[in-house]
Simulated scan of single mutants.
Amino acid sequence: MNRIAAIDWLRGIVMILMALDHASAFFNQGRVANDSIVTHEVGSGFVVEQFFTRWITHLSAPTFVFLTGTAMALSIMQRREKGMHSKAIDRDLLIRGAFIALLDIVVFSFMSGKLYLQVLYAIGVSLMLMTLLYRLDRRVLLASALILLCGGEAFTVLFWQPHGEVPLWLALTFAPWFSESFTVLYPAIPWLAIMMLGWVFGDWLTTRAKNPWSVMRVLLIGGSLAVVCFLLVRGFNAYGNMLLYREDYSIIQWLHVSKYPPGISYISLELGLMAIMLAALLWLQPKIVIRQYGPILVFGQTALFFYLAHFAVLTMLTLFLERAGLGQAYLAATITLAVLYPICCAYRALKWRYPDSVLRFV
């Protein structure tokens, strides 16, 4: 199966949004990032442009993790078709997962001056666990993922006091932990469940790739149902919001959902929007010429490399740009994308030239 441009486009779009969010963290003095009951002060207001700049980037992490599961399913099918042994496939998954998790545990923690577990930790652990899970029946995986996502809050709040001590096992699996020496932003299990959903979609896609209309129909129905789920959960303003409740009926309060840890309202909204966007991109794909050097496609096909490299570029930009307002963040993001585009083109060419090298893990 050839690469599906729509998936690469969507991944590229969310990488651009992620670059904007991290540029905001580096250069925006007024950045809003209180997407957790732990960090949000009830009753505090929001600067509209700051809130929506942060909010549009919420799409990045769930989409990236979901599409990692999808790409894994498509890749394993291709490798099986080429006669690759299951043990070799599992070994590569374990190595890639361990490598990605160690980037957070070692590299980014060293840069932060403390143990700091972010999205790479969650992705790496999830990849390693998927070596055990992907052999399960597709329906079992789907049901298990939904149980984890829908029941995760009930389990989490049994042990989690948002402003109290968090046991290490809980911080690594379900609940975030913020401290001066140890921070967990992405406990692994909710993100594993999202990756499982991505795997289920990818596995199903291998049987429907020649019928794009059925794929688009499922994405539109599933995405619409997920958005309805968001509206119901946010409307009832009780279970499913990870204790970050709506304080009034303003649009900002409807959209101010918990990412740390991800509540049902957050996951259903972001995955719903993702599914609708993917359906639109699949509809668009046969109607336009796919430009192999289009920036969005290039960024989507080099996503992990892009993730690592954009931090280096943002760090270098601190030598030239100061922290200022929101405009500074957009400027830094634009410069970062311009710098990374030729680098990502060169990296993609190198990786494609040596498909069996260690570059396949990045």
Score class of each variant (00 low, 15 high):
N2K: 15
N2F: 12
A5S: 14
R11S: 03
I13V: 04
I13Q: 00
A23I: 05
S24M: 15
G30C: 06
S36N: 07
V38E: 04
E41T: 12
W55S: 06
I56Q: 07
T57G: 11
T57Y: 06
L59R: 00
S60V: 08
T63C: 05
F64V: 10
V65W: 01
F66S: 03
L67Y: 02
M72H: 14
I76D: 02
I76H: 03
R79M: 08
K87F: 08
A88E: 13
R91G: 10
R91T: 11
G97H: 05
F99S: 10
L102S: 08
D104N: 14
I105H: 12
F110K: 12
M111N: 05
M111T: 13
S112H: 07
Q118T: 11
Q118P: 01
V119K: 04
L120E: 05
L127Q: 06
M130D: 01
L133F: 11
L142A: 10
A143E: 09
S144G: 12
L149F: 04
T156R: 11
T156W: 02
L158W: 13
P162G: 05
P162R: 07
G164P: 03
E165R: 10
E165L: 12
V166Y: 00
L168T: 13
A171Y: 02
F174Q: 08
F174I: 15
A175C: 11
T183S: 09
V184D: 02
W191Y: 15
W191T: 06
A193C: 10
A193K: 00
I194M: 14
I194R: 00
M196L: 13
W199A: 05
V200T: 04
L205V: 15
T206I: 14
W213F: 12
S214P: 00
M216I: 14
R217F: 10
V218N: 07
L219T: 00
I221N: 06
G223K: 06
S224A: 13
V227P: 00
C229K: 00
Y245T: 05
I252A: 01
H256P: 03
S258K: 02
P261V: 02
P261K: 06
S265H: 04
S268D: 09
L269V: 10
G272S: 04
L281Q: 10
L281H: 04
L284N: 06
K287E: 12
Y293W: 15
P295F: 14
I296F: 10
V298G: 01
G300W: 02
A303T: 11
L304P: 01
F306T: 05
F306Q: 02
L308Q: 07
A309M: 14
H310G: 03
H310S: 09
H310W: 14
F311R: 05
R323D: 07
L326D: 02
G327P: 06
Q328P: 03
Y330A: 08
A332T: 09
L337G: 09
A338E: 04
D356L: 15
V362P: 01
